[in-house]
């Protein structure tokens, strides 16, 4: 029975270490979180190994809970990542360095945040109704619904009603 738990422990430790390295090394927020999930994988392997060693299913039950928690955590984390991206337009972890204390002139920060993406109009504006009593502008709305275009693409002549 010597090696039964041993191999699980070894692989679990290696995966955990690799996940830790990945978390520290990568700068993309999403990849960082993926590496956290990798660390969890290592932990679950450990648990399964011990469950096998002891011959009962306590370890496996714990793994079920871990799975559940990992799912919840990834959902919330990814929601946060999306919200963050909406604001920052970048997924660079170096973007969030406001708590730095290096106040000497010439102090270098570990990384320069990469430039943010210029803002595109990701979503077209929701259509609105014309005020009561006016003719709804038909053509411009359709034109403005182009998903990959920019707002300024619509031609405007003076006097035309636009609701952009």
């Amino acid at each position: 029975m010597t090696g039964v738990a041993l191999q699980f422990l070894v692989v679990g430790a290696v995966l955990f270490a690799l996940g830790a390295v990945g978390f520290l090394v990568r700068r993309n927020l999403i990849i960082m979180f993926l590496c956290v999930e990798l660390m969890l994988q290592g932990a679950t392997l450990n648990l399964v190994g011990f469950s096998r060693y002891h011959g009962n299913l306590q370890g496996q039950s714990f793994v079920i809970f871990l799975l559940t928690t990992a799912a919840c955590e990834s959902a919330i984390a990814l929601a946060l990542v999306v919200a963050v991206y909406t604001r920052w337009r970048t997924l660079d972890a170096a973007r969030a360095s406001n708590l730095n204390e290096r106040t000497e002139p010439g102090a270098k920060f570990p990384l320069d945040p990469s430039p943010a993406e210029p803002r595109h109009l990701d979503y077209p504006p929701a259509p609105t109704l014309a005020p009561a009593g006016s003719e709804p502008p038909v053509g411009e709305v359709v034109r403005n619904l182009r998903p990959s275009g920019r707002a300024g693409d619509a031609a405007r002549t003076p006097g035309e009603f636009t609701n952009v």
Partner: peptide, 14 residues
């Protein structure tokens, strides 16, 4: 993306 090309100090982490 730029931030996917570079790693942050691999040596100490490794």
């Amino acid at each position: 993306a730029v931030y996917d090309q570079r790693f942050w100090s691999p040596l100490p982490a490794a």
